[in-house]
């Protein structure tokens, strides 16, 4: 069996969650990858061990990984594959269900474990339940949760690169602009340590109190929905059911109450630390270490103690 993995990328780098999708796909059989956009990314893809072939969609219509042309391309290539796989990233979640509909397949989103070629485990209800589902579709279309599979190594392989013939562009969508938050920090979904703030941070200015601590720990910064909705940080910081799913070695939650929608995004972290002034806050039920107290005293003290 051979799987085709859509390998998505940002600013010339393959997403770590896409490398996890390669690992997941290799549990099913041989792996070919599809890269839309820059040739440098296709070359990087060729170096991933275990990738047997790189399909490179070089045509300009694929430059921004727009769903409409990309889904059409995947459908034109799908004939030779048993599975179509992508990371459950913004790109994967946008493109794969569209391709699935065109193939008359019910997609299987956010797979966290592969039982066999027909059977997959996925979280439902904000991760409060794990459903094992069996697909009767001849072809499987799945997105894979990055935190559930190790990333494939980036070096060691030397797969051939083949340029694919473009499919007919539906011509219903145009890319206008992209606004990426420029940050020196590690990517939230792949950081070893995440420092997260909630409504307890009170304001955009006060949220900066977390930065020296994050610097010290080499951490990414995350946030609850309440912090994002209140405008303390941009939307891409949100951790949770409807934000990013993270599973770092260490997750530090400051002024976050621990609503189930937030827990859905971080409860698979290896070690959780919670700081909250309310001893009854639900976050303490999942924290390995908790401190009851005022974060505005504890954060600077912790930063200092790490010196």
């Amino acid at each position: 069996m051979t799987a085709l993995v859509l390998l998505d990328h940002e600013e010339g780098r393959i997403r770590k969650s896409a490398l996890s999708a390669v690992t997941a796909a290799s549990q099913l059989g041989d792996v070919h990858v599809l890269v839309a956009g820059d040739v440098a990314v296709a070359r990087a893809a060729a170096a991933i061990p275990g990738v047997a072939k790189v399909l490179h969609a070089a045509d300009a219509q694929y430059a921004h990984e727009l769903a409409e042309p990309l889904a059409a391309l995947i459908v034109s290539l799908a004939g030779g594959y048993d599975q179509i796989v992508a990371a459950a990233s913004a790109v994967g979640k946008n493109v794969l269900p569209r391709a699935a509909a065109l193939l008359d397949v019910q997609p299987i989103p956010e797979v966290v474990s592969i039982v066999d070629a027909e059977t997959f485990v996925r979280p439902i209800y904000a991760g409060n339940a794990l459903a094992t589902v069996r697909s009767s579709d001849a072809k499987k279309v799945l997105t894979v949760r990055g935190s559930a599979f190790d990333a494939a190594p980036a070096e060691g392989g030397s797969a051939p690169i083949e340029t694919v013939v473009p499919a007919t562009n539906p011509n219903v969508s145009e890319f206008v602009a992209v606004h990426l938050s420029d940050s020196e920090r590690p990517e939230l979904e792949s950081a070893r340590v995440v420092v997260s703030g909630g409504r307890g941070l009170q304001s955009e200015e006060k949220f900066h109190v977390l930065e020296p601590l994050a610097d010290k720990l080499g951490a990414a910064i995350g946030a609850s929905r309440a912090a994002v909705d209140s405008g303390f940080v941009p939307n891409e910081f949100q951790v949770g059911q409807t934000g990013k799913i993270v599973a770092p070695e260490l997750y530090l939650a400051f002024g976050i109450s621990g609503a189930i929608q937030h827990l859905a995004g971080m409860k698979d972290s290896r070690v959780i630390v919670a700081v909250n002034k309310d001893p009854e806050a639900p976050i303490f039920q999942v924290a390995d270490y908790g401190i009851v107290g005022d974060l505005f005293e504890i954060v600077p003290a912790l930063t200092e103690a790490l010196n």
């Binding site: 979280p123 339940a129 459903a131 094992t132 069996r134 001893p279 270490y289 401190i291």
Partner: peptide, 22 residues
């Protein structure tokens, strides 16, 4: 197209300890 084989509770995390100081 999908049949549910089973639905299970995820492994629950145990609450840890509260510490007194930084």
């Amino acid at each position: 197209r999908l049949t549910v084989v089973s639905v299970a509770e995820p492994q629950q995390r145990q609450a840890g300890v509260k510490v007194g100081s930084v």
